[in-house]
């Protein structure tokens, strides 16, 4: 059973949208509340490797894509969540499941101002210590 079928099978009621761009690139959209549960299934049961995450400031809200790699078949599955609250964006931290997510969440926190609930060490990673509070370089203006 390919990864796409396994995921469709396991997460049938959680997926809002399923899109297969090519044989090895899959995108699914989910609700932010389901993120932690789905990641647990990905990481513990399907043994996917977390590659990284991409945070994007869009008109509809903050979009985060969590990229997971299934190394046995070379497929990449990107989990898309949309945080609609632009005033006070927040989402569950994945760093409590595996420490490999710690740095990228710190980066998204300082670059986009998204709060990660439960992150063990949420402090600046790339920006300088004297960078002004409340200024987020990757937020779009206006």
């Amino acid at each position: 059973m390919s990864l796409a079928e396994q995921i469709k099978d396991r997460l049938v009621d959680k997926i809002i949208e399923f899109y297969q761009h090519s044989s090895k690139r899959i995108y699914i959209s989910i609700n932010p509340e389901d993120l932690k549960e789905i990641t647990k299934i990905f990481y513990k049961e399907l043994n996917l490797r977390f590659c990284t995450a991409t945070g994007i400031d869009t008109r509809r809200g903050f979009e985060i894509l969590y990229h997971f790699s299934f190394d046995r078949t070379g497929e990449i599955i990107s989990v898309r969540v949309l945080i609609e609250d632009k005033k006070k964006p927040q989402i569950d931290s994945l760093a409590t499941l595996f420490p490999g997510a710690e740095w990228i969440e710190r980066e998204m926190w300082e670059m986009l101002g998204i709060n990660f609930i439960g992150h063990p060490n949420l402090k600046r990673l790339l920006l300088a210590e004297d960078w002004p509070e409340g200024k987020y370089p990757l937020r779009k203006k206006g």
């Binding site: 490797r49 977390f50 595996f98 420490p99 490999g100």
Partner: peptide, 8 residues
Amino acid sequence: QQAIDWCV
């Protein structure tokens, strides 16, 4: 296990 957890 550490290598898996830190996604190296």
